[in-house]
Amino acid sequence: MFQRLKTKFAKAPEDASQEVLDADNIPQHIAIIMDGNGRWAKNRGLPRIAGHHSGMKTVKRITMEADRLGVKFLTLYAFSTENWKRPKAEVEFLMKLPQEFLSIELSELIEKNVQVRMMGHKEDLPPHTLAAVEEAIRQTAGNTGLVLNFALNYGSRKEMMEAVRRIGQDVREGKLSPDDLNESHFEQYLLSSDMPDPDLLIRTSGELRLSNFMLWQLAYSELWFTNVYWPEFSEAHFNEAIREYQRRARRYGGL
């Protein structure tokens, strides 16, 4: 069953690529789990870091395509709280990528009116990584176009646990009554409090799981999986994910 599901999502019918996207039904917020860099490199006899470097180029392509289509928010799962378990050399390389990417692409992001944000836990990031991201955030703060949100050192369970701790502290200090707490109030304590929930989640590389990514926010998101590794993920794949989204009826538990 799962293999059939993956195959269906990975390869669209030949005529589907000719379908024109409904400009009035573009997902407002798209989140992507960018997976498969290491396997892409291994299949080519290259070191894993070559896959990560190639994946950085895909970030540029998909960001520009999202902007062209009118997507308002694009959240990219760049580094999870679990990724620290990887080999030290690979982690160090991954921590250099934001600095390299932004040094090359920031001027064009500014030109395209893209606003850079970060969603994650800053305290564990190396100073050079955090400085590069915060500088990009500062320089693009006034931009009003696509929001490019990097989930960097992000973990959804940690996010929710910290939200619960902050709620508990506010209750102890008398700033909040437990009787007043509802879903909308809880969301204000999340790292994504200034964004709408994702309409569409894309995951590359054939894996069919969320991997501790935006577990609260993805409750009613449409999910789209592909076997394509992230370095090979193209604008055409991105468009097909949106086409599939537009074919679906979102009921939110209703009829």
Rank of each mutant, 00 (worst) to 15 (best):
119 M>W: 13
146 L>R: 08
146 L>V: 08
126 P>D: 04
133 V>S: 00
139 Q>E: 10
159 E>M: 00
160 M>W: 00
150 F>P: 04
169 Q>R: 14
122 K>A: 08
131 A>S: 15
139 Q>A: 13
133 V>N: 02
118 M>E: 01
135 E>R: 14
148 L>P: 07
113 N>K: 08
160 M>V: 00
126 P>G: 12
136 A>V: 03
150 F>S: 07
128 H>Q: 15
119 M>H: 11
134 E>W: 06
155 G>C: 08
156 S>P: 01
151 A>R: 03
140 T>M: 03
163 A>R: 00
167 I>R: 01
156 S>G: 09
154 Y>L: 06
123 E>F: 08
147 V>H: 08
131 A>H: 13
110 I>D: 05
153 N>C: 04
145 G>N: 03
132 A>H: 04
134 E>G: 05
126 P>S: 08
129 T>W: 11
110 I>R: 02
123 E>A: 15
147 V>C: 10
120 G>Q: 07
132 A>S: 11
144 T>Q: 12
151 A>P: 12
148 L>S: 07
123 E>Y: 14
167 I>G: 01
154 Y>P: 03
159 E>Y: 00
153 N>S: 14
170 D>M: 02
146 L>P: 04
113 N>F: 10
145 G>S: 04
143 N>S: 13
153 N>I: 04
139 Q>S: 09
155 G>D: 02
172 R>C: 13
